[in-house]
Amino acid sequence: MVSTRFLVVSLTSLALAFAQTDNCPEIPVTGVTMGEPVPMKPEDIPKGCSDYEILVARGTSEPNYEAGGGKFGIVVGDPVVSNTTLKLPGARGYPVQYPASANIISGSLQGKTDVVKRLITQAAACPRQTFALVGYSQGASVMHSAAKEIPLVLYGRIKAIVMFGDPALRLGEVLSRFPVGLNGKVLEVCAAGDPVCDPNGTCTFYHLTYIRPSYINTAVDFIVKGFTGK
């Protein structure tokens, strides 16, 4: 497998180089084998309390930006968390503990269970902590599943939900909604042409372009506003 540093350079350079047009650029050679599970590292789980916590469910086989100290996924989670913490020093990230592998049914169940457990546990231990949920691709599906089981009493503690490349969007507006009480806090980020979320999309390349600053900055601003009300 190529180094993570080369991977992030490849993704960033190509994502910035191509505008979203009718052309379909080739997917960069990243060395990542799609479907392979991502190792979960207990040492990456933050302890204690914080003012704000961002739960991130990564995309399928999405590695970390290890060269930059990433823990949440090189395309979406790492840039979202790092940029949010720069704007909001009291924020931190939590990597959802699931393999993000080709075993989608069992993996999604594991991810959903972990999200709900984390929210319940942290909310009880940290009365002032509030939360944001971020999901990318398969991770977005994990968040949809988790949202159905989050206790109603915790809805007020969840301040923002951001989905990148959400497969549920292909099912239509009604089926892609979150439960009442959460749906008004959702930002859906779908690149035009991305076949995972765009019903008219046909180019897989665009599913890797969420690392673009235009997408990341929009998500970060949404999360910060959700947390602070500003």
Rank of each mutant, 00 (worst) to 15 (best):
P179A: 09
S137I: 11
Y65F: 13
G181K: 14
S61H: 06
D194G: 03
K41H: 14
K112E: 09
P39G: 09
Y206R: 02
Y210C: 08
P89Q: 00
E62Q: 02
H144S: 03
L182C: 12
T21D: 03
C24P: 12
N23C: 08
V153S: 12
L109T: 08
K41D: 13
L7Q: 04
P199T: 03
K47W: 11
A19L: 15
T4V: 15
G59K: 11
L133V: 04
K87T: 13
Y210L: 10
L55M: 10
I45Y: 14
V80G: 05
P28Y: 08
G193L: 06
F178P: 02
D194V: 00
S101C: 13
T84Y: 01
A147T: 01
S10T: 15
Y98A: 06
L171M: 04
S145H: 10
T113D: 12
I120T: 10
G77S: 00
D194R: 03
P25W: 06
D22C: 00
D114P: 09
A125S: 15
G229P: 10
I104E: 09
I223Y: 05
S82G: 11
S145N: 07
V9S: 05
G193Y: 01
G184W: 06
N103R: 04
Y136I: 03
V174L: 10
L154Y: 12
K112V: 04
P99S: 08
M34Q: 03
E43K: 13
Q138K: 14
D221F: 00
F164G: 03
G135V: 11
V220S: 15
V8M: 12
S10D: 00
S3E: 09
T85V: 07
